[in-house]
Amino acid sequence: HLGDNHYNCPVVAYYPEVIGANMRCLKDCNFIHGYVGLHRRHDFPRKMCAILQKSFPDITPAQVRAAAKAAYAEYAAFLHRNRSKGDEMIAEARRRHMPIIVLSGRPYHLDPEINHGIDKLITALGAAVISEDVLSPKMRRFPTHVLNQWTYQARLYAAAKYICDKPDMNLVQLVSFGCGIDAITTDEVRRILEESGKIYTEVKIDEITNLGAVKIRLRSLFAALEK
Rank of each mutant, 00 (worst) to 15 (best):
L193C: 02
D119S: 09
V12R: 05
V134I: 04
I90W: 02
T209I: 07
D87E: 14
Q53R: 11
H116R: 10
E194Q: 03
D87G: 08
K54L: 14
R65Y: 12
G37E: 11
L121K: 07
T60G: 14
G212W: 03
N170H: 14
R191W: 08
C29F: 15
T151L: 15
V64E: 03
A124R: 06
D111H: 07
R94M: 13
P143D: 04
A127H: 01
R96F: 09
L52M: 05
D111W: 09
D43F: 09
G212P: 04
E74H: 09
D206G: 03
Q63K: 10
T209V: 07
A66M: 07
A50V: 10
H97N: 14
A213N: 08
H109Y: 13
L221A: 07
G34N: 10
V146R: 04
V12N: 08
Y14E: 11
G86S: 04
I51T: 10
A159G: 06
G37H: 15
E194Y: 14
A62T: 05
I101V: 14
H80C: 11
V189W: 03
I199Q: 13
R81F: 03
L171W: 01
A77E: 05
C9Y: 00
Y7Q: 00
I90G: 02
I59G: 13
E194L: 03
L110S: 13
A154L: 06
Y108R: 06
H39L: 13
K138Q: 06
Y152E: 03
L135Y: 00
F44G: 02
R95H: 12
F142R: 08
N170L: 05
L79P: 06
L79I: 07
N148R: 00
V36E: 03
S196Q: 06
A76N: 10
N22Q: 09
A68C: 15
D43R: 13
P112M: 09
I208D: 00
Q63S: 13
Y162K: 09
N82S: 12
T60R: 08
L52H: 04
V175Y: 04
I199S: 07
